[in-house]
């Protein structure tokens, strides 16, 4: 494996940038976003530690692009849900613009982390870690036993561990 070199990425960029942009345009239906994300694909490549001479460069680029498209859609969905939820708050309780976008980022990360986790385990995890509820309080609120809360919490931790370790 070679270490990522600037020239490697440069040649990938020269050969495939137009193709990648067209691919992303088909997925997103927006030229500007497609251009932005195709740039991001090559930025990711520059940041990768090793092995950027793939035998199938287009399949490789497409798989990175796919991940970015998923993230993009997720962020948009999170932002919309956040905007709609805030709409009912009075003006004095609204977050600052900076805080607004920080939380969009944080919620998008959290949403990705908890994707595919069972609904009740997700709820338990969020109640404990985000709302700071104790396990007995969660058990009471969900009308389940303390041992169910503990099992769900263990399930959630196992899930998060695997996701964060890339397994």
């Amino acid at each position: 494996m070679t270490v990522a070199s600037h020239s490697n990425v440069q040649s990938l960029y020269t050969d495939h940038c137009g193709w990648l942009r067209a691919l992303l345009y088909r997925r997103l239906g927006c030229r500007d976003t497609a251009a932005d994300l195709s740039q991001d694909v090559f930025v990711r490549l520059l940041l990768k530690p090793a092995g950027t001479s793939p035998r199938e460069p287009r399949a490789f680029l497409a798989s990175i692009a796919h991940g970015l498209v998923v993230d993009h859609h997720r962020r948009r969905a999170v932002e919309q849900a956040w905007r709609e939820t805030l709409a009912v708050l009075p003006a004095e309780n609204q977050p600052s613009p900076e805080e607004y976008w920080e939380i969009v980022d944080a919620l998008a990360r959290l949403d990705a982390l908890l994707e595919h986790l069972r609904p009740r385990a997700r709820t338990v995890f969020l109640m404990a870690k985000l709302d700071g509820l104790t396990y007995p309080a969660i058990a009471e609120r969900l009308s389940v036993s303390l041992s169910t809360v503990e099992k769900d919490m263990a399930l959630a931790l196992r899930h998060c561990y695997r996701v964060l370790m890339g397994g």
């Binding site: 969905a77 999170v78 849900a81 956040w82 709609e84 939820t85 805030l86 708050l89 309780n93 977050p95 805080e99 920080e102 939380i103 980022d105 944080a106 919620l107 990360r109 959290l110 949403d111 982390l113 609904p119 997700r122 969020l126 109640m127 870690k129 985000l130 709302d131 700071g132 931790l157 998060c160 561990y161 964060l164 370790m165």
Partner: peptide, 28 residues
Amino acid sequence: ERLGAIDDEVRGARRAGLPVTDTLDHLQ
């Protein structure tokens, strides 16, 4: 320590007084 790193992922979304959990529920 690695399990503790899960808390780092959550910390950024923890905001008193803002409906972050409601947002995630709404999204789901």
